[in-house]
Nucleic acid binder design. Structure first.
Length: 634
RNA sequence: GCCCAUGUAGCUCAGUCGGUAGAGCACCUCCUUGGUAAGGAGGAGGUCACCGGUUCAAUCCCGGUCGUGGGCUCCA
């Protein structure tokens, strides 16, 4: 028998019947990839195989580690609650969860007790024993155990299936697992919540417990530390602390009131947005907040999105809807007159505020609201122009996102599911052609992407760009969508060079997504420390005593006259107190003036990031600021 | 929308086993004019989310509504 390692360099020969655990090369190994398939260490090697051992450091090994911890959790729950029904317990991006059917939800105290039981199970160092059996036998087994969810899963599986045992605990599971429970060293149950069986909201609600585990205590501590850091950056608290915006019960859930400082940040972002679009040949429009119900019927939005549209407003014999999208208005602008191929591509952009009745449970700070401003645009072009338009949109997105310090993305190409063609609009040719245009643009711009089958909207395929923030968290920003629906519903045509009418292609796109969400993401990304060009207050002038107030006021004036967003704190407080407050407000630069500054004609400058940075004269300081703003330094 | 938790001063939170409440910070006044993250004293501030029920009496117990948080589902 021959066993090769991954590099196929040092092949080794073993006796027949050798198991992986007989040949592991170090103690950290918890499983292995054998010919590309994950296996338990108890796996008996075939005649010839390529083997790569896995440790918890490895991406896949980590999944095995977490998933095994989920089993221990399930066992602990079964020991404490014998009637609990097992559902599913996978490893996820950060840890694992397990869903249980129980009469009563778990309380935080119960989680603590479950953790204690888990520690016991780990202490008992029980092996994970794998066994294969036919589906019928497995169904019989789980019927005896009363595990109805497992039976439902089994009914969709083919023989043979595998089960794993720890002592008297049996779970249906594909595996693999660590060799024994003692391999799990440090873990924590992090949360519990309700979750629908199989993610289907028409099915019963199960109780889910989340957790995470590591081999070393430091790793667990690092993880908990990161959670704390994320909490510190929570845009909801920072937004309130920094006076950016407010929300209020009596105004309504998911409705944002922007405060002066927040408006400043928005204005800077929106001006930047305007300039970048102007440069690239976009035209700007502004559409009303309501329109007649018939318009939404015609566009199809009323049929497809009725759940999220606010109820009809009636006055006399007319009825109106508050807009959930900007599209129909853009379409009407296109249709305002006969369009010639000479006018195309026509790029209509709008910062359009839309209202959607989002389910109450999904609202979340600025990231999920009921009234928000899309940085929307529709591109009307000839089919032959679509590819290049897509390239331009991707470049625009990259340029804008990188200005905000987002250089890492994950890109998804969402296409239809060829097996469910009746769920989608347009014919096969449209979909294939659209996909090839999107792929072309992705290749041309050198973006690597993931193809997501069945994730497209019913009206067309799309590219989504998810940005990664300073903590490597993912946020949806750019979306670029083909729309086969609108051209058809509204019969959009252009007069071709040949004197005949042709169908126009509509590309619907948003770069930032929504201004509200984007500001929320920025706050978390920067932890509230906006770079100078975005900071609502760029400089704060602090006179040391009241005698200096007038002189400080002149400095404030001069900074303001140079276009710097500046405030002065001339309250009767000590300097260190004023510095403390300005620091908490995360103002990028503090200018300190006292008698020394009056005498020398310089100012003392303290930077948010670097502390005391010396005593330049005012005009040098202003040029420094202007340069930093101009560069949009991050 | 569903599951669980939760709602006390502008903010962060105590508290009342049913007899209408308290701290720190912030705010206001006075003293202090101080050189790189909290000077001192005093004061004001709450229909205890809202609506209903039980009770002699409800901020507390019960029901409902609304809001918020963590998830599920959905999504910009």
């Amino acid at each position: 028998m021959v066993v090769f390692n991954k590099a196929m360099k040092n092949s080794k020969t073993y006796k027949k019947g050798t198991r992986l655990e007989d040949v592991v090369d170090n103690d950290g190994v918890i499983g292995a990839m054998v010919d590309g398939e994950p296996r338990d260490l108890s796996y008996t090697l075939p005649e010839k195989a390529e083997v790569r051992f896995l440790t918890p450091e490895d991406e896949y090994g980590r999944q095995i580690y977490w998933h095994s911890t989920a089993h221990i959790l399930a066992y602990a729950v079964k020991r404490r609650y014998p009637n609990a029904k097992l559902a599913m317990g996978p490893a996820i991006k950060d840890g694992f969860y397990y869903d249980f059917g129980v009469d009563r939800p778990f309380t935080p105290e119960e989680l603590t007790r479950i953790e204690e039981e888990m520690k016991r199970i780990i202490g008992e160092d029980l092996p994970f024993d794998r066994e294969e059996l036919g589906v019928d036998d497995a169904i019989k087994l789980f019927k005896e155990l009363g595990e109805n969810y497992k039976i439902e899963l089994l009914e969709e599986l083919e023989s043979p299936v595998s089960i794993y045992r720890n002592n008297d605990f049996i779970d249906l599971c594909k595996g693999p697992h660590v060799p024994s429970t003692g391999r799990i060293k440090f873990f924590k149950l992090t949360a519990s919540s309700g979750a629908y069986w199989r993610g289907d909201e028409s099915r019963e609600m199960l109780q889910r417990i989340y957790g995470i585990s590591f081999e070393r205590q430091e790793e667990l501590q690092d993880y908990l530390e990161r959670m704390k850091e994320a909490k510190k950056r929570d845009h909801r608290t920072l937004g309130a602390d920094l006076d950016l915006w407010m929300m209020n019960d009596e105004i309504g859930a998911g409705l944002v009131v922007w405060l002066s400082r927040g408006v400043t940040v928005r204005k800077v972002i929106e001006d930047f947005w305007w300039d970048e679009h102007k440069k690239r040949g976009y035209d700007f429009i502004l559409s009303p907040h309501i329109a007649k119900t018939d318009l939404w019927k015609q566009s199809g939005h009323l049929d497809y999105y009725s759940d999220l549209i606010y109820p009809v407003m009636k006055k006399g014999n007319q009825s109106y809807l508050i807009k959930p999208m900007n599209c129909p208005f853009h379409i009407k602008v296109y249709k305002r007159k006969r369009r010639s191929y000479r006018e195309l591509p026509l790029r209509l952009a709008e910062l359009g505020t839309v209202y959607r009745y989002e389910k109450s449970g999904v609202l979340h700070g600025l990231l999920r609201v009921r009234g928000f401003t899309q940085d929307d645009a529709h591109i009307f072009c000839m089919p032959s122009q679509a590819r290049d338009e897509l390239v331009d949109i991707i470049n625009l997105a990259r340029d804008m996102l990188s200005a905000f310090g987002f250089g890492d993305y994950r890109v998804e190409l969402s296409v239809w599911n060829v097996n469910e063609k009746d769920k989608y609009m347009g014919d096969e040719k449209d979909w294939e052609n659209a996909e090839s245009c999107l792929v072309y643009a992705l290749k041309k711009t050198g973006l690597s992407y993931e193809r997501m089958e069945g994730e497209a909207a019913f009206y067309g395929p799309k590219i989504d760009i998810k940005i990664l923030d300073a903590l490597k968290r993912e946020w949806q920003a750019t979306t670029i969508q083909f729309d086969f629906n609108l051209p058809q519903k509204f019969n959009l045509k252009f007069m071709g060079e040949d004197g005949r009418q042709h169908g126009v292609v509509v590309i619907h796109r948003a770069i930032l997504g929504s201004v509200e969400r984007f500001v929320g993401v920025l706050v978390e990304h920067y932890g509230g420390k906006f770079p100078l060009w975005l900071a609502p207050v760029q400089v704060k002038v602090l006179p040391i005593t009241s005698e200096i107030n007038e002189f400080a006021g002149d400095i404030r004036e001069e900074l303001a006259a140079s276009g710097i967003r500046v405030e002065m704190d001339d309250r009767n407080e000590k300097l260190s107190f004023k510095i403390r407050e300005a620091t908490i407000e995360k103002v990028p630069y503090i200018v300190i003036v006292g008698q020394k500054e009056i005498d020398s004609g310089c100012i003392s400058v303290r930077s948010r990031d670097k502390g005391d940075i010396g005593r330049p004269n005012l005009s040098d300081f202003i040029s420094l600021l202007k340069e930093e703003i101009e560069k949009r330094s991050n």
